[in-house]
Amino acid sequence: MGRRVRTEQGDCRSGPDEGEQRDVSVVPADVLPGGALAVEEPAACAAELGPRARLWPSLAAVYRAQLSRARVARIPLLFVATFQSVGIMVLMRGVVDDGAEAQAVVAGSSVLVVAFVALNLLAQYFGQLRASGGLDHYATLPVPPAAVVLGAAGAYASFTVPGTVVTAVFGCVLFGLPLAHLWVLVAVIPLAGAALAGLGAALGLLAPRPELATLLGQLGMSAALLLGVLPADRMPEAVRFARDLLPSTYGVEAFARTFGPRPDWAFVLGDLAVCGVVGVVSLGVATWAYRRAAVR
């Protein structure tokens, strides 16, 4: 895999220069009147294939290309995501008390930025790409499906970093929470990002129509908002069950636990592990969905 093979050096096929002379004529095909006479095929034997793009270099290339799109198209949306979360925290300030509920609101609002970008925007992106035929571009390149999905998901997860950090710091200051353990975002953002981006990519690629992908992305984000930001103790049993099903919840819980005076790191790790597992599964599903969408 990835062996550098110049196709024109294939054994079975005539090379660019000597081949045309060997086979039929010394005149290049394009100067013949009408050009009808081209070089006849040598014996039926398969030409060597061009190189395949390897996983990591192509993942890096897709990631870089997707990240560059941020400069053109994504920055206004990143502002919207951040302002939305900041606005929610300001609203909730009058409603919640200062203890565990405040921690849940700050953690929920921070992870909401991840949900907005990684789930909602990525679902829209893949939905539109699929509907408009943009996937053909990738499908006609020898690139592993996982590289396209992981590169895009990784880039969208990266878009969320500034907004999430700003939201978390603002929330801590607003509610008087300690900033000491904010470093845990280093784990929360990629793992919650992987889970939500995988979900977003899968929704976008599986939705039969782009409007449906947009709708599903919006619904996912609304769910993350309602179930993640609102303190869980006040919810009825059925809603709590739905909350447990949503992957963003575990990112919120992990982050919220670190605000306590003595965080229980085992539980934090447990929650992050759930995010990681969901991330692996959903990215796997998204890769399968990409394969399915690319060749019809």
Partner: peptide, 28 residues
């Protein structure tokens, strides 16, 4: 083969230079 389809949505938000470079990298 290299294919030029009718749609450019996959490349639309990239710069001309990055679109060409990325495509080349994805061609191995």
């Amino acid at each position: 083969l290299a294919y030029l389809g009718q749609e450019s949505t996959a490349l639309d938000e990239l710069t001309v230079s990055l679109a060409a470079e990325t495509t080349g990298r994805l061609r191995g």
